[in-house]
Simulated assay, not measured.
Amino acid sequence: MRPLLALLLLACAFSAQAEIKTQTIPYQSADGTKLIGYYAYDDAKAGKRPGVIVVHEFWGLNDYAKRRARDLAALGYSALAVDMYGDGKTAAHPKEAMAFMQAALKDAKVADARFAAGVELLKAQPQTDPAKIAAIGYCFGGRVVLDMARQGMPLLGVASFHGVLDTKTPAQPGVVKAKILVEHGSADTIVPPASVAAFKQEMDAAKVDYKFVEQPGAKHSFTSPEADMHKDHGLDVGYDKNADEKSWADLQAFFASIFG
């Protein structure tokens, strides 16, 4: 066999082996809500690996959240995009999305139970190291993961991307176990400077180990290429490729620090 042909066949064989596997997994929270998770991992990687929860924007468990799970799988993590609305609901219009989000946040215990159910599902996957779990969230999902950290959920770290920073349950000294990364756009009008200042004051007062990164000139939803479609709905959002790539690099460095 010619050397070049042999190399091509070897490359094709390796490519066929290195594949991101995905699976839709039904599960339910303690209150009986039926949920649908989207799980992703790289089957070419042997053994257990850190697990990462992905919490969707207020649009629901859409293609963007699922893509981020695949992105994490490609980095070598066991990733689960969770469902905070139930039945995998998604919205196309802001009014519908707002209704879904408000319903999910109406009772904090319900939101906690849905997130916790996702964590248990991720830990149960054979590829996951249950001792190494983190969470990331976008917009609404950013608030969710920050609130889970505030409540002392045993996560190694949480990362919020253009997340909602306000909360009804401020962090208290000695409670937060997770390290925190916040990626925020300097031109975000949905999460105004007053909210940023209040968040930093809250974290400092509670002596939380956190890092706040401001992406220059970035608007709300700066990581999502789909954001520009929603400008017609009157939302002050926009994709920023530079901020997206920089914040993703920050996340990888953050995970390297917490997972070891």
Rank of each mutant, 00 (worst) to 15 (best):
M229D: 14
V82R: 03
A30Q: 15
A197M: 07
Q215R: 01
F255P: 05
R67G: 15
E226N: 13
V176N: 13
S29V: 04
P50N: 00
K179N: 10
D129F: 06
A111I: 03
K200G: 07
A218R: 01
P50C: 00
L8T: 12
M1V: 08
I25H: 07
V213I: 07
T189I: 08
R143T: 06
P225W: 07
K48E: 09
A69F: 00
G234M: 10
L35R: 00
F212C: 06
P173W: 00
V176W: 13
Y239E: 03
V164W: 09
H162I: 04
V176M: 10
H56W: 09
A178S: 12
Q127V: 07
S186T: 12
H220F: 08
S221Q: 13
G217D: 08
V208P: 01
L80K: 08
L156H: 13
A65Y: 05
G76S: 01
G88P: 04
A11F: 15
Q201I: 10
A198L: 09
I258P: 00
D31V: 02
R114Q: 03
V52S: 00
K34P: 15
A46E: 15
E57S: 14
A73T: 03
Q125L: 08
K211R: 15
A205S: 11
R150P: 03
A249S: 09
F259C: 01
S195P: 03
A159N: 07
C12K: 12
V54W: 02
A131E: 14
D112I: 00
G76H: 03
M148K: 14
I136M: 08
A6E: 10
A197P: 09
R2Q: 11
S160H: 06
V110P: 02
V55S: 04
G157W: 07
D244G: 02
F140P: 05
K48W: 04
H230T: 07
H233N: 15
A131M: 01
D236S: 12
A11G: 15
A178H: 01
L181T: 01
L105C: 13
C139E: 04
L80N: 06
G137W: 09
Q172C: 11
R68W: 11
F212S: 09
Q252R: 08
R67I: 10
P154E: 15
D166F: 10
A218H: 08
K241W: 00
G32Y: 10
V82I: 12
V110K: 14
D209K: 12
F212V: 04
T223P: 05
A103E: 13
A11P: 15
E19W: 14
S186Y: 11
D204A: 13
T167Y: 00
A124I: 01
P154G: 04
D112M: 04
Q28I: 10
V110Q: 12
R70G: 11
K231E: 04
A73F: 04
L105R: 09
M1Y: 12
V82W: 05
K219M: 09
K231D: 02
A159F: 04
E96P: 15
Q125W: 10
A103T: 09
T128C: 12
A243M: 00
V182G: 06
A108M: 10
Q102L: 12
K246N: 14
Y138R: 05
K177D: 00
A116G: 10
G141I: 02
G88F: 00
M101Y: 09
G174F: 01
Q28S: 12
F259T: 00
K200V: 11
A99N: 09
H56T: 06
I136A: 06
A135C: 01
A81L: 07
E202L: 03
Q102M: 11
